[in-house]
Computed example of a mutant assay.
Amino acid sequence: MTPRLLFATTNAGKLKELRQLVGDAVEVVSLKDLPPVPEPVEDGETFEANAEKKARAYAQATGLPALADDSGLCVDALGGRPGVHSARYAEGDDRARYEKLLGELSGLPEERRTASFRCALCLALPNGGVRIEVGRCEGRILTGPRGAHGFGYDPVFFIPALGKTMAELTSEEKSGISHRGEAFRKMRAALLSLQAGG
């Protein structure tokens, strides 16, 4: 029987990425597939703290192994902001958030627009076991959006090594280079051990 894993997210983009990355080894269900569970407050100071808090809460509430991530954009010129507040950086949608960011960086030269996407991924087991992995992707913030794929800050996050923004990558290219893809690859063995009943 294929083991079930709860990916504690309602973000369709993240869910699609994980399902593509994990394949058929594990059945990935989301919060939308289960009866409502109280949502933990993400009040940690770090991505790791928020991911662990979510994963532990959902594993305990559902009795399933739970995977939770917390990720965001850290801009060097803004002292690491928006960081853990990336999803709540501005009222409205993704576009509102990246437009606020572009406004804050307005007039800043290219070499000072360095940034990184960071992801902390936590796997919590119903028995209390926890594993955390982190991933990072370095890049630069453009002065305007490019590309039609991805979500969040992807259209303004440029990866010099590829000459493209995150939003110009295919989903396969993105998972090969992204912060979440890196964290997942580090977590892969732990996820596959679920299949072995480990």
Score class of each variant (00 low, 15 high):
Gly92Pro: 06
Gly79Met: 09
Ala90Cys: 03
Ala87Cys: 08
Glu17Tyr: 05
Arg95Phe: 00
Lys53Thr: 13
Lys100Thr: 10
Asp70Gln: 05
Glu42Tyr: 08
Phe47Thr: 02
Lys100Ser: 05
Leu21Ile: 01
Ala49Glu: 15
Ala59Trp: 00
Thr46Met: 11
Ala61Gln: 06
Asp69Trp: 10
Pro65Asn: 07
Asp33Pro: 06
Lys53Gly: 15
Glu110Gln: 14
Lys100Met: 07
Tyr89Met: 11
Ser86Asp: 10
Glu104Asn: 07
Ala87Thr: 14
Ala25Cys: 09
Gly80Cys: 08
Gly79Ile: 03
Glu110Met: 00
Arg97Gln: 08
Tyr58Phe: 15
Glu39Gln: 11
Leu67Cys: 03
Leu102Ala: 05
Lys16Trp: 03
Glu99Asn: 09
His85Asn: 13
Asp76Met: 02
Glu104Met: 11
Arg19Tyr: 07
Gly72Met: 12
Lys32Gln: 15
Val28Ser: 04
Glu48Phe: 00
Glu99Ala: 01
Leu73Glu: 13
Glu39Met: 08
Ser106Cys: 06
Val75Gln: 11
Gly79Ser: 08
Ala68Cys: 07
Ala90Lys: 08
Tyr89Val: 03
His85Ile: 01
Lys53Met: 12
Glu91Asn: 10
Val29Ala: 12
Gly103Ile: 03
Arg19Cys: 02
Ala66His: 03
Leu105Ser: 08
Lys54Asp: 11
Ala87Pro: 06
Glu17Trp: 10
Tyr98Ala: 10
Leu105His: 10
Ala61Phe: 02
Leu78Val: 03
Glu48Asn: 00
Pro38Ile: 04
Pro40Gln: 11
Leu73Ile: 13
Pro40His: 11
Leu18Met: 15
Cys74Lys: 10
Gly44Asn: 11
Val22Ile: 15
Leu67Arg: 00
Ala90Ser: 13
Asp70Val: 01
Pro65Ala: 15
Ala90Ile: 01
Leu108Phe: 09
Glu48Met: 06
Val28Asp: 00
Pro65Asp: 09
Asp70Lys: 00
Ala25Ser: 13
Gly83Cys: 04
Pro38Met: 04
Gln60Leu: 09
His85Val: 05
Val84Cys: 07
Ala49Gln: 15
Ser106Tyr: 06
Arg88Thr: 03
Ser30Arg: 12
Leu18Cys: 04
Pro65Tyr: 00
Glu39Ile: 01
Gly44Gln: 06
Leu34Asn: 11
Val37Pro: 01
Tyr89Ser: 05
Thr62Ala: 05
